[in-house]
Design a protein around this nucleic acid. Structure first.
Lengths: 178, 178
DNA sequence: ACCCGCATGTAAGTCGTTACATGATTGG
DNA sequence: CCAATCATGTAACGACTTACATGCGGGT
């Protein structure tokens, strides 16, 4: 899925700047299942604008640099629906941490614990963010599709954190010094 | 993590050809958390060989084309351990299907059902493969690291399949014609 | 002072997938 | 007979990330 479609999707939720779109993929709703950097967003936005799928509007801010707010057009809406209708490429998940833990025996015990706990902590933080009130409040009256995806993230992270907590003694050695 | 390190890791488990290495990332142990194509494997293997991290051995087969079996060297083992010790880049997950389902309301009901069920079925198949006897047998006497990663895949897929089954009526409408 | 956040944009560089090139054998 | 599996290798192509270029304001 190209950056253009990715941006277009975010814009169906409302006007946004390139910088704000990135935040959606960094901390927001989309962070869980996709990532895009500014280096792809700005060119994508320029192309979308040239194609008439979005309109631009300059906004002056005080204390902050000017920004450009992009809004999706009717043509853009139609194009986005068409893009959603196409077949999607399969999910892809890549985890260097899991690759390392696969070979856990080749790591020193200290390093193994370091990697394991850092990875567990990362997932705990992700889970906490998804469970946060802020996030829940935003989703209270969100359409089913958005609630579904959020819920999917929640159950996945929960299952993962629980699993890692249960396997910790087995992976790092029984001893748990107080 | 570059393809070279990825190949080296597979080779710590035993001699293998480029084609066999890909299978590990296609159907085997590594499929769950990483992917590499032949286009990256062969050049990686050539470089590893030039650097002395692996040795090559030509093998004639009857009925099948000749193959080259690569074996990791002592230097290769050391290099791999060093690579494992470096800090890893964060996990990345990208799912076009979840992106589509996020915007489920923009799809027609039939298309929505199609996408949802195809995605659910995909995960059911993945789960079944990981639960299969073949896979379990291979892991029976595998080191803890490998068992951990396999278990992580299992719980994630299970949680996901259960969630999708529970949310199906809500997402596709209550009616369930026999 | 210095770094971070906000804000946009371009260019270079990396890296990986897809396609091409070849070729034998087996099953439908 | 055609497709698929086994098997290796190269080259083109595409897409994204990183770094560069710029600049103000606030917090440490």
């Amino acid at each position: 899925m190209d950056s253009k479609t990715l941006c277009l999707g975010v814009l169906t939720l409302g006007e946004a700047s390139g910088y704000e779109i990135r935040k959606q993929f960094e901390d927001g709703m989309f962070a869980y299942f996709h990532g895009v950097s500014l280096g792809s967003i700005y060119p994508a936005l320029a192309k979308l604008s040239a194609e008439g799928l979005v309109t631009v509007r300059g906004v002056q801010q005080d204390g902050k640099p000017d920004k450009k707010l992009y809004r999706i057009t009717e043509t853009g809406q139609t194009a986005f629906r068409a893009a959603l209708d196409k077949d999607s490429s399969p999910d892809q998940f890549r985890s260097e941490a899991l690759y390392r833990l696969f070979f856990a025996e080749l790591l020193t015990p200290e390093r193994r614990r370091q990697v394991y706990d850092a990875y567990l902590e990362f997932h705990r933080v992700q889970l906490a963010e998804m469970e946060s009130y802020r996030c829940a409040a935003e989703l209270a009256d969100a359409p089913p599709g958005q609630r579904f995806v959020h819920g999917a993230g929640l159950v996945s992270y929960r299952a993962f954190v629980e699993y890692m907590e249960s396997q910790r003694p087995r992976m790092l050695g029984e001893e748990e010094p107080s």
